[in-house]
């Protein structure tokens, strides 16, 4: 299976380390979400992948071969800031971009029709790009990334500024491309969306990949949390739990009967003992593992690291 490998990238701007040993892989047919705070190094990494920026060290490979200009011609790229000639007509512009990616004129024209219709801007082919609304410009921008039927897709913030309908179309398109064997890398701050669409996620902080994997893999932790909804004397139960080793009570919101537990030693089955103990003391309405969302994971990584740094 062909893989896009980002291997130990380093890039500094003066004293600022934009990328510090940044590595990750994206397999063909996979949608990879690239997540990180502002200035974490997402855009720099993507620019290096596209060769518009040179890395200080490290390399990007496709199919075990270093990504060169010839291979890059088959990459579909969407830069973070919209990048189109404002005073050129949508159709002409997309045809031009398709042709510099090596397409023949008839193929380019056909691809322009296909993608502008698909992305809902078919009626605007004769308009100058600057006349379009920001959202429609974004659609044209995506069309520009897809127009030459790329074998790799690298999209920087493709969802920003889109309405829910366009977000749906865009997610579908990304999934379709991935199903055809294209590795799709995109960055986004809309973490719920990333969680929903992506097969795997990479969280970058200060130029380093802090976590890479499926969302479920990232959820695996040595401090699992459980939520317990108790119908009996809650203060008494709390006192009992406090005496148990390896379990910590976290502050919880809502009714006094709701308890949030964190297991420190992660001994398998330890949650069962708590459940038995609680049931012995009174009714338990609910006892379930807390599945951290990508937002929680992201916040955890960013805040814990920040805490260390401070």
């Amino acid at each position: 299976m062909a893989t896009l490998e980002v291997d130990r990238l380093h890039k500094s701007y003066g004293d600022i380390k934009a990328l510090d040993d940044c590595s990750f892989d994206v397999h063909s047919g996979e949608v990879f979400g690239f997540v990180g705070s502002n200035g974490a190094g997402k855009t720099t990494a993507m620019r290096i992948m596209l060769g518009v920026l040179a890395a200080d060290s490290g390399e990007v490979r496709w199919n075990r071969k270093r990504l060169d200009l010839e291979t890059r011609r088959h990459v579909g790229y969407m830069p973070e800031e919209r990048g189109l000639y404002p005073k050129m007509k949508v159709g002409e512009q997309l045809t031009y971009l398709a042709r510099i990616h090596g397409m023949s004129t008839p193929d380019a024209v056909a691809a322009v029709e296909h993608w502008t219709d698909r992305l809902g801007v078919g009626t605007r082919r004769g308009d100058h790009v600057q006349k379009l609304s920001l959202g429609n410009q974004q659609r044209v921008q995506l069309a520009a990334a897809l127009i030459h039927n790329p074998t790799i897709l690298v999209l920087d913030e493709p969802f920003s500024g889109l309405d829910p309908v366009a977000v749906e179309v865009m997610s579908q398109v990304l999934r379709e491309r991935a199903d055809e064997g294209v590795p799709v890398v995109f960055s986004s701050h809309q973490l719920d969306l990333v969680e929903r669409i992506c097969d795997r996620v990479g969280i970058i902080r200060s130029g380093r990949m802090e976590a890479v994997g499926t969302v479920d893999e990232l959820r695996v932790t040595d401090r699992p949390q459980w939520r317990l909804e108790y119908g009996g004397d809650a203060p008494a139960l709390r006192e009992w739990i406090k005496t148990l080793p390896g379990v910590k009570l976290l502050p919880s919101k809502g009714k006094p009967g709701i308890l949030l537990l964190e297991f420190r030693d992660a001994r398998p089955g330890s949650e069962q003992e708590i459940l038995k103990g609680a049931l012995a003391k009174g009714p338990v309405h609910e006892f379930s593992p807390v599945r951290p969302s990508l937002v929680d994971l992201f916040r955890g990584i960013v805040s814990s690291e920040n805490g260390e740094a401070a």
Partner: peptide, 17 residues
Amino acid sequence: VEEKTSRVVEILLATIK
């Protein structure tokens, strides 16, 4: 400067020298 301000140059440079 138009290519720079519109950032279209980023797409172009990903494809051509």
